[in-house]
Write a protein that binds this DNA or RNA. Sequence first.
DNA 1: TTGTACGCGTTATCAT
DNA 2: ATGATAACGCGTACAA
Lengths: 374, 374
Amino acid sequence: MTPRDLVGPATYACVVSHDRGRRPTLDTIALEVGVSRATVSNAYNRPDQLSTRLRDRIIATAERLGYPGPDPTARSLATQRAGAVAFLLGQGLSSAFSDPALSIMLDSLASTVDSGDRGLLLLPGVDDLGPRPSSVARAQTDVAVAYSLPDDSPALDAVRQRNIPLVVVDQPVVPGSARVEVDDGGGALLAAQHLGSLGHRRVAILGFALTPDGWHGPADAARVTSARFRVSRDRVAGYLSGLGEFGITDVPIWEASCGDQLLGREGARWLLGLRPRPTALLCMSDVLALGALTAAAELGLSVPADISIIGFDDTPAATWTTPPLTTIRQDLVEKGRRAGELALLLLDGSRPGPATTLGVSLIPRASTAPPSAD
Amino acid sequence: MTPRDLVGPATYACVVSHDRGRRPTLDTIALEVGVSRATVSNAYNRPDQLSTRLRDRIIATAERLGYPGPDPTARSLATQRAGAVAFLLGQGLSSAFSDPALSIMLDSLASTVDSGDRGLLLLPGVDDLGPRPSSVARAQTDVAVAYSLPDDSPALDAVRQRNIPLVVVDQPVVPGSARVEVDDGGGALLAAQHLGSLGHRRVAILGFALTPDGWHGPADAARVTSARFRVSRDRVAGYLSGLGEFGITDVPIWEASCGDQLLGREGARWLLGLRPRPTALLCMSDVLALGALTAAAELGLSVPADISIIGFDDTPAATWTTPPLTTIRQDLVEKGRRAGELALLLLDGSRPGPATTLGVSLIPRASTAPPSAD
DNA sequence: TTGTACGCGTTATCAT
DNA sequence: ATGATAACGCGTACAA
């Protein structure tokens, strides 16, 4: 059926209800009211361009015919604006909502970006590599914000190919993109120095994945050297550097494939099973540290008397644990806000500037103490 | 990083500027290769429709000219599919990521919906009312999933106006939509009966907002009667009904405008300041219960000796608290999965069936006990 | 207010 | 088999 088949307005309304495939469009309304399509469009988008009376008539007619308003997709096509910010995650959405560090950051990002009529399009990743390139290619978005992807994530190639502006949070370093990160190396250094100055000499690392290959377990030197996650790399380096100041060189590392609490527990069990047993654990996140707390309790070790545990992030949970968690604070809210602002700037046509690096600080609580003289 | 990495983006920018802002489209490629637009489209979407050689030539040319692939918006316009599921929240995204019950559900929903090339479009709400109608009107989505909105949320009118399928999670009841909810009344009943059978006779309720007007503080009978959140209404009814079985009729209620832990603490302080002091608190969520635990500790009351506290949801945090929290379990993962499945079904053209109601159960832990004989 | 030229693809249907 | 033609899809924006 072509528009020519429509003889009159009344007929059309009839046709509409009969023919379900045919939704009313701007043209339908224009025809019915007897004005042009442009005028109907103006009624919705520029009410000041026409008389109130005409506008009311148009809106009323639209309602009567069940016109749902200008189609968002068509509007996007015409305006060349998708009206959404895509957020690229390393893993499934599962992580987005269960990892507090990510949640808090995302929340802040969302409220920053939200001002305006923009939505937040979440693109879940697969296997720590980030979203599939095809997902990125099909996403209706004006700008991409990538969160903590490995150095060689194919998703980032897809973003570049689409030539949309990119904001990278944490990692990796992508030339030509805006970036906000935290002083991971410095934070790790602080944590290690804290333990060292407390007198610990046998310290182990409970860390994130070094490379997105799904491995979890003890990490040897080769894995550390070839790590493809910048954050993990920098934090390990910071830990080792800080421990090195105290002459500590032999540092076991357990690598959790994801920041999952259960894996943290498993890793801590392994590390605490080493002989001689470490007297302190450097955990790359509070969540991993929570797992470590659980493991310690299960092994009958008391924290911090038998084992000191230090986290990273300073998420709210760090204050609720027993004992409250000594940790490295990063400003997750600020990180999200900056990322959102950068996204808006890029949308406005700004060129990306140098990366923003947020500071970190040591928050001493009750999960660390000098080692007991055993 | 190799020098090549640095050159890549710059090179592309160069191509773009040559074209004087005119980005390549399907036509550009078609013209260059000397085939029709349709053939180029097929090269991307139906590789089997043309010879491998021609396809390779097309793809190569596309890459050479910096063609980013078929434009997602144009594709959506043509296919009449946005390729996204919109998720409507009552409040800002802040809540989405900080409320564990929501996070877990959303996570599950996301992974259900994720299979396929769909994204999840988050539409944050304002003032507990849900997203602004204009946000809904402009969202590029094929289906809407509304989470826990008040009975008269304007966002739902906007969804209906757009005539896109709707899945409602928890509340409200919207005719013509699919729905998944939990047995809120039954859960509340279980909680109240638990306390009653333990011997408690002075019980108070620490609850969610009854109406989206930002009020927090003591709730009188009028507010309860006119509540516009179904879940709050049903739970209060369930609580009162269960308590009624033990002859308890005078039940103070404190209403938290959001499920925030700080508000939970504030409410608990108020309730625990009443004289005679309640011996037990019915909390509408684990998060509120956490706040109550904090308040009790600050008031020097020990749980459960001085005060019994029962939560709702059975989020992971319930097991970590001191003492571990007695609570009502609802299957949040299942709830999300069902909601996702319903969304996919509706996308497939199915008609919404009757609402799915998920069961609840009492999880007794250590935060409830018989009242001390004071 | 209106006419109308885009925006960018998809997908029958048709031709070789 | 392969590829071409052309008809949509639905608005926006600018000149008239």
